[in-house]
Write a protein that binds this DNA or RNA. Structure first.
Length: 231
DNA sequence: ACCCAGGGTCATA
DNA sequence: TATGACCATGGG
């Protein structure tokens, strides 16, 4: 966040905190990952893979209406039925299997009551071992459901910070995550707020590659609010 | 009609 | 390690 005056620094290793301030100034604080329970967060994390959140909302509403938003209900459900309920979230056959895989693992480990005591690193490895749970999904669950200080990297993060020139954008997931976590104090609340701001902002940032030098985080930038522009 | 969205897995080189 | 194909709906 703020650099200690005496801390050694190689040039440009403190951008994460500064950008956070800028985004906060522009967009203000916002509550994020709307959900009524930890389990709903976990389900949402899987359903939102490469999918607009509005489509996920409908799927979750369907699960609730069918009284199916629970570990046991999902494990016991017929795949066709489950797939039908989450149809709006896209990739419904794949995601139905992923939900089941996750829930079988989750129940098998004793649920939140047991998993809450696992160290973050072990929990991440276990989550990544669930078929259908990758880096981002695992970290979504760690941050938003388990309240662990994990910085989530998504397509918006790569785009926004790639355009700012702080990263290339194509680095491996854990490399970018490490960069953020090393620059910021380890607070889940801040990480969650930051991720929300990045997503909010990312929707208005030009997507052209290679990045345009004139595209900045300033709302006054002539490319702000345009998804695409030449060069 | 085209492009994109809060990814992940698998086959291939 | 690094591409490409595939999964699929809904909104702009």
């Amino acid at each position: 966040m703020r650099a200690h005056p005496d801390s050694p620094r190689s040039s440009g290793d403190r951008w994460a905190g500064q950008v956070y301030r800028m985004l906060l100034d522009q967009h203000g604080t916002r509550k994020w990952w709307p959900a009524e329970s930890r389990f709903e967060v976990m389900v949402g994390a899987i359903l939102t893979q490469n999918t607009a959140w509005t489509n996920v909302e409908k799927a979750i509403a369907n699960l609730k209406a069918a009284d199916m938003l629970g570990v046991n209900a999902i494990v016991q459900a017929e795949q066709e039925v489950l797939a039908g309920l989450i149809r709006s979230s896209g990739y419904f056959n794949v995601k139905a299997r992923r939900l089941r895989n996750f829930c079988e693992w989750y129940a098998g480990q004793g649920g939140y009551g047991k998993l809450r005591y696992w160290p973050t690193a072990r929990l991440r490895q276990a989550l990544l071992g669930v078929h259908g749970v990758g880096h981002e999904t695992a970290d979504d669950i760690l941050l938003y459901a388990f309240n662990r200080p994990v910085f989530v990297i998504d397509a918006y993060t790569r785009r926004v910070f790639g355009r700012l020139g702080h990263i290339g954008g194509d680095e491996p997931y854990d490399e970018i995550r490490a960069a953020f976590e090393q620059q910021l104090t380890s607070r889940p609340r801040v990480f969650a707020e930051y991720h929300a701001l990045i997503v909010q902002h990312g929707k208005h940032v030009c997507q052209s590659r290679p990045r345009c030098e004139a595209c900045t985080l300033n709302a006054g930038c002539r490319f702000y609010n345009s998804n695409r522009h030449s060069q």
